[in-house]
Structure formats: structure tokens, C-alpha cells
Design a protein around this nucleic acid. Structure first.
Lengths: 201, 201
DNA sequence: CGTACTCTTGATTTCACTCAATTCAGGTGG
DNA sequence: CCACCTGAATTGAGTGAAATCAAGAGTACG
């Protein structure tokens, strides 16, 4: 176990490369994505501190991970890690729990991508991000470290559509833009209603 | 561990209910889905024999599972199962592996739902189903036990679009319809090309 | 056979995408 | 400190892929 650093924009792991390490995010935020041959990109998730990165037991990483802001990570070498497992049966259990949580989130995301409208997707995302990061910030206040392009690629939309939907939410007074990357959510319930909240992760 | 039976159309587990059992599919096929409050449905996966069902370690099931055809399952009671775990450390490891495989599949599905066209989605699905079931059938031949509506809800499309894309593939001579639920894939490579194959699960 | 599905095909609409300007914010250098 | 530059975000106009609406054509089943 070693502590590592990456600057904003740097790649931490690459899709297809041999999975040699497992990480735990200490600070900063990370995006995970997969690319199609023609450049289309789908962001499969964002990581916040305490999240695991690279749980795949397979030989190779299934996605690329890139630092959104400067990040600090704990790095577990896979070789040493395998030797640790018998001594820490609890670790394997914790990994299974983490994998199950990720799996549930992935299934929610499939519903979002397959069946929700653009506005519902954005509302859903803002709410989800608010819930995940609210420990670090004041309630009713959200910081979005990722770009509009990242949000678009996470929601299966274009930047223009994300921008338009954000404007709609702003006009409906459901959110207020404090700055480009910060917004206030005075009534999370109203946002939840627009997200068709039943499945919101 | 008990063997159970369900008839086509019957629900095996329900989204939101307490997760009391874990299953392993012995025969038949199963669909997993989540519903939005207004009835929109997203099928998050299909199960074939040897797949696990209900790996969630959470308190409640994350989705509903319904038998497509008559199915046989091995049922592991969660209470007894917990007691078994210390005796079978290998089982937890196998579950983690299964969860990781599912997670990778879920990520591929996110790319499909977020960034692929209708035609690419169908081509991708046919190829994927062909690979998963080819052990039971002759190569170049696919049996689709699920309805068009199920396929549509898996691919984030409508039945009409699925039907139209199937017609396109037929006209392009990439597939041949043997019957409503059986089709021939003479040149899987051509199908892979249409699916933009790089990420095909 | 007729009934009730499921599936296919056609016509039209719509939501999100594409293309094209602006506008805005953050940094740089005069 | 302010003007300029650059990339990101917003806004607008027009297009397009898939959805919706609406018939028909097959299929299974009593």
C-alpha cells in the first residue's frame, strides 16, 4: 500500500491494460469512461473520496480512469494484494459489498440511459451528486468539478442539451447558478419530482 | 439449497422486497427489470443457465426477476447461506468474480444505451446473445426466447424500432429469420462490424 | 375457423442532435 | 488595472433518428 498523486486531467488507469493495482480514492474526484472506435465516449461513473477504483478481478481494466481535479489515492499492488487476501478475509467481503453497491448504481444508470428524458436525467444526476457530496459541502449547495462535456457523456446527451436543461431548471427556479461549477438546490424535493424520483440512486 | 421451479411469466423475486434468497439458474431463461412510476420499463439483463440471481448483499432486491420460459433454479436461503460462508471462503470469492463480471457487462450496456444507434444496439445484442447461448445451440443459429417488447426494453428502444432494425439486418442479408424466435447468423463478423464491435461484451 | 396476440409496416411528430453564433470566465501580458 | 485571448458554456435555427400513432399481417390457441 502506497499513496500516489495525479494531477487534473491525468489518466490513472487505461482501458484494456493489465490490471496490476487496486486504488482507494483519498481526495479529489475521478471519472471512469469507455470509448467507441469513432470517439464516442460514455462516462460510466464518477468517484468521490473513499470509493474503490479498479475492482475488476479480470486480467485487464474495463475502463479508463482520469483525474478530474488533482487526486490522492492509496495504491494496492495486485501481487501483494493477493497475498494479503487470506490474512484479511474481511477485505474480500468489503470488496464484494463495494461491487454490489456499484452494480446497483450501474443498474439505476441503465434505467436513466434507456428510459428517462433529458430533463429527468439531469435532475437525477444533480440530486445524486448532491447526495454523494453533501458530507463535504453545505446542504442545498452543490459543487460540480466536472465539465458540461463530462456530464453530457455521463448522461448520454450532448453539452448543448445539458446546458438547455440546466437553463430550464434555472427558469423553473429549481436550481440557482452560483457560478459555472457551483449551484444551489433550495428545494431538493422539487428536483426529485422532476427526476421521477422512485429509482434515484 | 433447494431446487425450485417457476413457469413462464412468473416472478421469481420482486424489486424492493427483502432479499431472503440467492439463486443459481439451472435451466430456462430469466429477465431482470426495473420500472419507473409511470410504467416505463428497463430490462437490465437476461440470465442463462449457470448465472446467479440476487447477488445483492443489500437488504432488498434491486430489481424484479421474471421467468421468460419455464425455469429451474437452485435456491440458497440467505440465513443458512450466511452460516455457510465461513466454511466456504471460496464461495465468497466466486460471488465476487460473478459480481465483477456482471459489473463489466453493466458498463458495456451503459455504453450501448448512452452512445450507440438503434441498429448498433440490435446488432450488438444479437451477437452477445449468440455468444452466450451458442454452447446450447448450433453455431450461426440463435434462439430468442424473449419477446420483441423485452428486447426493446433491454435496448432502450420501442418494439417498432426493434422490428424495423431487424428488417434492415434481414434486407442486408446479415441475418435470416427462421421463425419469429429463431434466426440464422451466417456471417457473425458482418454483424460485429455493424455493432461497432470493439466493446461488444 | 375465429379470436386475441404479437409482430411488422407505414405516416407523422417530437425530442434531442447538429451546426452556427454569441457570451462568458479565466488567464496573460502590456 | 485593464484589454486581449482562449476555451467553455450558452443560445438559436434547422435537421434527423427514433417515438408515436395507426393500420395490417402473421401466429398461436381454443
Amino acid at each position: 500500500m502506497v499513496t500516489t498523486r495525479f494531477s487534473a486531467g491525468e489518466s490513472i488507469i487505461h482501458e484494456g491494460e493489465p490490471a496490476t493495482a487496486l486504488f482507494n480514492l483519498v481526495s479529489g474526484s475521478v471519472k471512469l469512461y469507455k470509448l467507441l472506435s469513432d470517439g464516442r465516449r460514455q462516462i460510466t461513473g464518477f468517484l468521490v473520496p473513499s470509493d474503490f477504483l479498479g475492482i475488476a478481478l479480470n486480467k485487464n481494466y474495463a475502463y479508463t480512469a482520469e483525474a478530474i481535479e488533482d487526486v490522492h489515492l492509496c495504491r494496492f499492488d495486485r501481487l501483494k494484494f493477493g497475498a494479503l487476501l487470506p490474512e484479511l478475509p474481511n477485505l474480500e467481503h468489503r470488496l464484494l459489498e463495494a461491487a454490489c453497491t456499484e452494480l446497483a448504481a450501474a443498474q439505476d444508470q441503465m434505467v436513466l440511459l434507456g428510459r428517462r428524458t433529458a430533463l429527468e436525467r439531469l435532475a437525477s444526476f444533480l440530486l445524486q451528486w448532491h447526495r454523494r457530496t453533501t458530507v463535504h459541502h453545505k446542504p442545498g449547495h452543490v459543487v460540480l468539478p466536472m465539465s458540461r462535456s463530462d456530464i453530457a457523456d455521463y448522461l448520454g446527451l450532448t453539452i448543448e442539451t445539458v446546458s438547455r436543461c440546466l437553463t430550464l431548471l434555472k427558469k423553473a427556479k429549481v436550481v440557482q447558478l452560483v457560478s459555472r461549477s457551483e449551484l444551489a438546490i433550495p428545494y431538493p424535493d422539487k428536483l426529485a419530482a422532476m427526476a421521477d424520483c422512485d429509482t434515484a440512486a
